[in-house]
């Protein structure tokens, strides 16, 4: 297991009258080298949960084991920097974290902080820029001149250049156009498949969750209410009903067709295969 939460709680401003118990007795395991989605309503504790992964927040009680480190309530792990190098966290609206005068420098900022030499950092920055789909003409431009989507790519490149084992993304596609978000998710999918990175994705888009993730965690009011394989979750009518999930297109179409009496296979990889089968039935 890459990450294990054990009876973890988190309370914001514990001594104040408005103390808020944001996470309640979290027991959760997240598999290594898999893509895990965390879904749930706004305010359900998703962002709070992931901020424990690199010890930005410490648990109020219980503990989290991440990549061989243990984060507990009383103190930060000794080698905090090593932990933060291993767990790369990309925040919501990450485009606002850019500050250097050139894009290349900004991407190289992370690795340099972790003690990588100047040359190596620049080399990694160039590679990361390419991975996120921006060509070398961007290297010397100012990050503040880019469009929102491009800025976000640069911010993500800044995390990739740190070469983390675990990449945590808090709604990486929020505010991007459909094409842009598709490209973004494909990028993480490739990183997972080709480089074996463990990826944790907070998302509101069940289309993406269903298509690209291996496991899904559902959070509600600070509690984990489901954790298991994504396909099983979405393909079980009972679970979909129980957690009132919005079905992805593919499954929605399938269930509508089945209601009309089409006999279809139990599982389809993509929309195209489903439509082909349905077309065959119509011809018959």
């Amino acid at each position: 297991m890459a990450i294990t939460f054990k009876k973890m709680n988190h309370t914001y401003s514990p001594d104040m009258p408005y103390a808020f118990h944001a996470l309640k007795d979290i027991d959760l395991e997240i598999e290594e080298k898999k893509i895990t989605a965390i879904i749930g309503h706004t305010g359900s504790g998703k962002s709070t949960l992931v901020q424990h992964l690199n010890a930005l927040l410490l648990p109020s009680s219980g503990e989290v084991e991440v990549a061989g480190f243990t984060v507990t309530s009383d103190k930060k792990p000794k080698n905090l920097k090593q932990l933060r190098q291993k767990v790369g966290l990309v925040f919501q609206f990450s485009e606002y974290q850019l500050f250097e005068d050139t894009i290349l420098k900004d991407i190289a900022f992370g690795p340099k902080n972790f003690g990588v030499s100047e040359e190596e950092a620049v080399k990694r920055a160039r590679a990361a820029l390419k991975i996120v789909g921006l060509d070398s003409s961007f290297e010397e431009r100012s990050p503040l001149d880019l469009s929102g989507g491009q800025k976000r790519r640069v911010a993500i490149a800044g995390i990739l250049a740190m070469d983390p084992e675990i990449i945590v993304l808090d709604e990486p596609t929020a505010g991007l156009d459909p094409h842009g978000s598709r490209e973004m998710i494909k990028l993480f999918h490739t990183l997972n498949k080709e480089q074996g990175k463990t990826i944790i994705l907070i998302s509101h888009d069940n289309e993406i969750v269903y298509r690209y993730t291996d496991n899904t965690v559902i959070m509600d009011h600070g509690e984990v209410i489901y954790s298991g394989p994504t396909k099983e979750l979405f393909e079980s009518d009972e679970l979909v009903e129980k957690y009132s999930l919005v079905l992805p297109q593919l499954l929605e179409l399938k269930s509508q067709l089945q209601k009309k009496g089409f006999s279809l296979k139990k599982h389809y990889d993509d929309l195209e295969a489903l439509i082909k089968d349905a077309a065959k039935e119509v011809k018959r």
Binding site: Q51, N54, L56, R84, V90, F91, Y96, G110
Partner: peptide, 9 residues
Amino acid sequence: NAQKSRGVD
């Protein structure tokens, strides 16, 4: 938080 995640102390 974002910069801490990038190794800023």
